[in-house]
Design a protein around this nucleic acid. Structure first.
Lengths: 224, 224
DNA sequence: CACATGACAATTGTTAACAATTGTACGATA
DNA sequence: TATCGTACAATTGTTAACAATTGTCATGTG
């Protein structure tokens, strides 16, 4: 199932990993659920070796855990994990914003403007899912504009786990009408090439929202 | 070849990956050199499947690259890579220092003090390698004191590639006598629990040294 | 000589069978 | 009854053989 824009055929283990990854981050494979190689072999019609390679990949990405001679499990995010992901994303976002501002090119500015306008337009609707997606895409674009390949990799790993968390919590955004506007200052800083401001704004950006979510998580965990 | 402190036996693929990883980051396996599964099979006396699993692991860690149906190569770090690693380490170090300062416990303070003293003592000798190692260890300790498992993972990946870079460049530290003192303010900030200062100092810490190294790299690359 | 063609060697991609380990259920025993 | 041991089922760990792909080199052709 190669991307339509490319001719190159990907090996089965990569294809399988891609499908499994999407199932995990979208929540259609529940967090904490068990995966056995035999079942996956039937499901995907490839051999155990190939399935194993795919699971190894996802294991290295932090999406599944492995217990020797017993099985594989989709990760489950607890309060500590959420805290870690939140803090990690903050600094990665900050670096991305700084570099994007410092290395901005005309084409990048156009893309950024377009993504921002798109998000703002969606915020006038009630489609929470679409808004969340556009939010993710805007941040991914900033990371991409940083011109930092490894940052993109690290960011991807972090975002994947955050998506697992969101899917497992089914947490709703409280005020999706304002999401667009809350990005205004950050986008402006990048467009004006102010790296310092961009980094600071990116780090502040989701701080309050994230902190509140995590502390509420801690509460619910204590009740168990 | 499990760690001496633990009873659990690790599977062959993990053991093989550990050995190969050490060979790569130590430079005994040259950057850019080719690895074939057949050769490694002979060398380690395990099957190709196991070797493959190990190589996959290292591939996901960014230490080897893979070209379909042709082979595996140890990564080679160029100026762009060095720039990326330098920037990435800066923010990871910054976050680690902040969290370490904010969550410092008495035991952690002791360890930190000890590691710092150790580094300072070594700086009075001429053993550049030992000094560099103690430097690495001090930073790793700070990351560990952050209590952030994922940060530890991301930092490890970054540090590994930096070690490959250092091994391939064989770059000497210019003034290893001052390395100890350059850590003084950072260590002090963490010990006093000042997260803001700790983050700022950590980010400034290696900035000048890193920037100079990278720009000199860019020069040498242009000459080719 | 430049260039297409085809065979072949080298290498990775994939599979199925076998080995090792773990957890569990069941029965023996104090 | 509680506990220990043991056989067994389920599952992953490991291996070797086979399939597919790539690069190369010799050969023929305009």
């Amino acid at each position: 199932m190669p991307a339509s824009s490319t001719i190159s055929k990907q090996s089965f283990d990569v294809q399988t990993a891609n499908i499994l990854r999407e199932m995990i981050v979208s929540g259609s494979l529940e967090a904490g659920s068990r995966l056995t190689e035999a079942k996956l072999t039937e499901q995907f019609h490839v051999s155990r070796g190939t399935i194993r390679a795919a699971l190894q990949k996802l294991h290295n990405e932090g999406l599944v855990s492995q217990v020797p001679y017993t099985g594989w499990h989709v990760i489950a995010i607890d309060a500590q994990d959420a805290w870690e992901l939140h803090n990690l994303r903050r600094v990665l976002d900050g670096l991305a914003a700084r570099l994007a501002a410092e290395n901005l090119k005309p084409e990048g500015a156009q893309q950024l403007e377009a993504a921002y306008q798109h998000l703002c337009k969606l915020c006038e609707t009630d489609d929470a899912k679409a808004i969340a997606n556009a939010d993710f895409e805007l941040h991914k674009l900033i990371v991409s504009l940083s011109g930092h390949r490894r940052l993109q990799e690290h960011y991807k790993l972090t975002e994947q786990q955050i998506r697992v968390f969101i899917a497992s919590c089914d947490s709703e955004f409280s005020d999706y009408r304002n999401i667009g506007h809350r990005h205004a200052a950050l986008v402006q800083a990048i467009l004006s090439g102010d790296g310092d401001a961009a980094e600071r704004l990116a780090k502040e950006h989701n701080a309050t929202q994230g902190d509140a979510l995590i502390s509420s998580l801690r509460q619910t965990e204590l009740q168990k």
